[in-house]
């Protein structure tokens, strides 16, 4: 409508950020020409805590990935440190392998302190 001047065109461009992505970067499939690689973003929310996966984004290189990660995942002081890692560098266990892969832990309840029965009245143990 004419009443809308819509005078913020440049900002809109900047706002929509990198518009060049591919999905499934992990498989390397479907990366059309011009697609930027996918990066996984890890954020340390404050000193004393480890970096935690926050999400992913597309960027042409590591420096831009860091800047984009700052703008995308730490607009509200969510972090004091950010890592970006190419998604293709992540090796993951497959969900299909889930049972056998994690099975060795399943039958070893004696690894937990709750496995053991303590005599009545014992303290500080």
């Amino acid at each position: 409508m004419s009443a809308e001047a819509e005078d913020a065109g440049r900002r809109t461009t900047a706002g929509s950020g990198g518009t060049e992505p591919s999905a499934d970067a992990g498989a390397g499939a479907g990366a059309a020409a011009g697609d930027w690689p996918l990066w996984e973003v890890f954020v340390r929310s404050r000193r004393g805590l480890s970096h935690v996966h926050a999400g992913s984004l597309h960027a042409p290189d590591a420096a831009m990935a860091l800047r984009n990660a700052r703008d995308l995942y730490t607009r509200r002081q969510e972090g004091v440190s950010v890592w970006v890692v190419p998604s293709t560098a992540v090796t993951a266990s497959s969900p299909d392998e889930k049972d056998p892969f994690f099975a060795p832990a399943a039958d070893k309840p004696y690894r937990h302190p709750t496995f053991y029965e303590l005599p009545e009245g014992v303290r500080n143990l």
């Binding site: 999905a23 499934d24 970067a25 992990g26 498989a27 499939a29 479907g30 996918l38 996984e40 954020v43 929310s45 480890s50 935690v52 996966h53 926050a54 999400g55 992913s56 509200r76 002081q77 969510e78 998604s87 293709t88 992540v90 090796t91 993951a92 497959s94 969900p95 299909d96």
Partner: peptide
């Protein structure tokens, strides 16, 4: 009103490495 990230996805690789058209 909100500053911290709460208990979001934890350390798992949420969006993780993508598999092509999905699951094997």
């Amino acid at each position: 009103t909100i500053t911290e990230r709460g208990s979001r996805s934890g350390a798992e690789s949420a969006s993780g490495p993508r598999t092509g058209t999905g699951a094997p």
